[in-house]
Design a protein around this nucleic acid. Sequence first.
RNA 1: GCGCCUGUAGCUCAGAUGGAUAGAGCAACGGACUUCUAAUCCGUAGGUCGCAGGUUCGAAUCCUGCCAGGCGUGCCA
Length: 554
Amino acid sequence: MKKGLSGIIMQAIKTGQERGELADGPLPPLTLEYPKEARHGDYATNIAMVMASREQRPPREIAETILRWLKDEEEIIDRVEVAGPGFINFFLKEDYWRHFLSEADRQGERYGEGELGAGKRVLVEFLSANPTGPLHIGHGRIGVFGDALANILEKVGFEVEREYYVNDIGTQMELLGRSVYMRYLQECGKKVEFPADGYQGAYIREIARQIKEGEGDRYLPLPEGRVVDLLGQKASDVILRSIKDGLKRFRVSFDRWYREGDLYRRGLAPRILEELQGRGYIYELDGALWFKSTLFGDEKDRVVVRANGATTYFASDIAYHQDKYDRGYNLLIDIWGADHHGYIPRMEAAIQALGCDKSSFKVVLVQLVNLWRGGEQVSMSTRTGEFTSLQEVMDEVGVDACRYFFMLRRADSPLDFDLELAKKEGLENPVYYVQYGHARIASIFKKAAERGINVPTFSEVNASLLRLSEETGLIKRVAIFPELLEGMALSLEPHRLTSYLQDLAGLFHSYYNKHMVISGDKEMTKARLFLAKSIKAVLQSALGLLGIVAPEEM
RNA sequence: GCGCCUGUAGCUCAGAUGGAUAGAGCAACGGACUUCUAAUCCGUAGGUCGCAGGUUCGAAUCCUGCCAGGCGUGCCA
C-alpha cells in the first residue's frame, strides 16, 4: 500500500514535469515515512525539500505544485497538507488502516510472511563455539541473535538453514586432549605438572574422573600422543553433548552440526588450495604457503599452510565456505563474536578469490558480554575456567527473560549483564510487560466466553466502530508488522522487534486501562474483541520469533 | 602505532531510508483497583546526543580531527 502512495506521488511529479512546472531530469528517490505525531498524518514525504536546490524555488511552493497534479484514482487519500519547512503530509481514509486488520485476520498465523526472500536459500552459521568448554553468556547472546534472525528471515520467505561449525580438530583439540590427559594422570595418582596453557576448568577434572571411573587406568601404557588424541576426542564428545543439551534448553536449534573433521576427511581444504594456487592466489615464502588476500583489500597476506605442513584454521574456513556455496546457498550469513572482527577482510578476500559475489557473504558481529555479579565483574576465560556458564545464567534469570534481555540491544553494542540486576528485573523486566499484554487479552477472551460471546472474525465485525485514537494507533501497529519484518531481514537487525513489542504492548495496556473491551454495547464489544485478537496474534507471532513464550495467563 | 566497534536522561539502553518538539524501562516523586488480571495505567521531574569543525533547507544519524572505553593487530583458533 505504501507502494501505491509512492506511485501516486511519482506520477504527480512526472505530470508536473510534462507541464513544464517542474524541472526535467531524473527524480530523486522518494522516501515515505511514518510521522511520529498523528497530527502530521499517516505518511509524510520530504520530496519537495529534496528537490528545492535544483528547482531553485522554496520547498513549500514545489510541494504545492506536486499536490496540484496529484491523482488519487483509488481514493485512498482523505486529505493532504503542506507543513513545516515543506513536508507533504498524507491523511488517509479511515478504512485504509482497517483493511490491514482483514488481511491479518485472513492470514492468521501466516500474517507477516512475505516474498522478500522468495527462492533464496540462506545459510546462517552461528555460535560454532569450540567444543573445549561449556558455553558462557556471550555464546548465549550470539545464539539468541542467530536464532531470532534465522526465524525472521524464514518468516519473510527465505529458505533458511542454521548451521554450527564444530571445530573438532587442530591445535585447540590437542590442547584439550593434553589437559584431560594430565588430569587423568593425576586421577591415577601420578604427579605431573599441568600445562600452563591448558584448560584449567573444573569440568576437565570431572571428565578425567569419569574416564578413570569407567575405564580405569587402561590408557596408562599407551603412547602419550595416541592417548591425547583419544581423550581429546572423548572430552569433546562429552562437551559437545552438553552444549547441545544446553542449547536445547535455551531453545536454540540447528539444522546441521558441520564438523571440521569431515571437511578434512573429504580432502576439501587441499583441493581448494590447489584451485586457488591455479588461479595464482597462492605463493610460497619462508617455507609456508600464503594467500594473497591483499589483492582484495586485506592489510596483509595470510598463511594457509604453515612451514610445519599443517594447514591453518583459515584454510579450512575457505574450504568450508566454498562448500557452503557448493551446497547451493545464495546467501551466507556468518555471525561472529566481535573479537573476530579482524578476520573479516581476509574472509571477504577469500570469497572473492573463490569467484563469488562479495554481497553474497555477510558477517554480523555480536559484541561480547561483560558479566557482572553485584557490581563485580566476572572473568570469563574458558582456559582458566573462571566463568559463569550459560546454564547457570538460565537457572538464575530464566530463559524468557534472558533471551529478551539479549535482544534488547543492538548486536554491535557491548552488553553489561549484571546477574543481580537481571534477577531484580525479574519482576519489572520488559519481557513480562509484553507477555502480560498477551495474557491479559487471553483473560479477556476467557471472560467473553463465560458470557457466551465468541471472538469474532473480521467479516462478523463492524470495524468502523474502531475510531478512537488509541484504536487507530493499535491498528497501525498491527498493519506495519510485515514491513517491520522486512526491515529487520534486510538490515539483519532483529533487536528492533523488542522495541516494537514494547510499543504495541504499551499501547494496549494503556487502552485497556481506559476503555472496556467487553461492555453492554454488543457491536462495540465484538469490534474490540476482534481488535484484541489481532493484537494477540501479532504479540504471539513476534514473541515466537524471539523464541519466547506467549502465556495464556500469568 | 594502525584497524574495527562504542560514547544519547542518575543507571541500562532504543532512536529504519538524514526530518518537524530526541524516546522507553529502571531509579525518584505524586495519583488510579465495588468494572475484562494493579506483573497495569495516569501525571511530575530528569538532556551540551563525548568535544570541535564541516557538508545542507535540516545532523544523534553523513565527513574530518580530537578525547575516552572495548576488541583486534600470529606460520593461534
